[in-house]
């Protein structure tokens, strides 16, 4: 049975699947934010899924995707078919998403699990009790996007310094930076 059906079978009964997309063979499942840890446990412990390895965890900022599209200057066909309709101005999907890349070592199957994060509620449950590997990636997501992980043992900035004022991988952060300076304090 192919992966999509199995995932549906596993998560479907509890209404845990928001949507499912397949792109070039990569299956990605969007799940509700509040139950992400349960979903991970289910995916890990269900025998015919067995996603026992957290390969990666990262954030995506969909700010530019959510903007109303300008008229494409070139009339490429690929662009047109996937674009959401420009007139659909209604409520955009939440701005951020956190993507979990799972891997089943026995069957070598990969699955992307996504949660959407609203700007008003930037908190996701931490995955560190399930996989210790989530530790630094979650810190990095916090560092780069400002998404907080509830229950994380040590949620500090990872790559930027501690009092860095912004979240650099957000789409509204300029590439050149904003002139932040690090003031080193030397103790005697």
């Amino acid at each position: 049975m192919d992966l999509k059906k199995r995932v549906e079978q596993c998560l479907g009964p509890d209404n845990l699947v928001v949507s499912m997309i397949e792109c070039q063979g990569d299956l990605s499942v969007e799940v509700p934010k509040r139950s992400v840890v349960d979903v991970m446990r289910l995916l890990r412990d269900t025998p015919d899924l067995g996603f026992n390895f957290l390969s990666d965890l990262f954030g995506v900022d969909n700010l530019d995707l959510n903007k109303p599209k300008k008229k494409p200057t070139k009339k490429t066909e690929e662009g047109a078919e996937t674009e959401e309709e420009p007139e659909e101005k209604g409520p955009f999907p939440p701005r951020y998403e956190v993507v979990y890349l799972l891997l089943c070592l026995e069957r070598n199957e990969r699955l992307q699990v996504k949660v959407r994060v609203e700007e008003s509620d930037m908190e996701v449950d931490t995955l560190t009790p399930v996989w210790k590997a989530a530790n630094w990636p979650e810190r990095e997501v916090f560092d780069m996007f400002g998404i907080r992980f509830k229950g994380h043992p040590n949620l500090k900035r990872l790559l930027m310094w501690d009092d860095f004022p912004a979240h650099p991988l957000r789409k509204d952060y300029p590439l050149e930076g904003q002139g932040e300076e690090r003031h080193l304090i030397y103790d005697d």
Binding site: C23, S55, V60, L65, E78, G79, L101
Partner: peptide
């Protein structure tokens, strides 16, 4: 190069281990 909108993850065995790239395209 203007890949169609979508997102993929692809990994290979680099000398250190699994080196993967997640690329998300918006068609531009």
């Amino acid at each position: 190069i203007k890949p169609p909108a979508g997102e993929v993850y692809s990994a290979l065995e680099s000398p250190n281990g699994e080196l993967g790239f997640f690329v998300k395209s918006d068609g531009s």
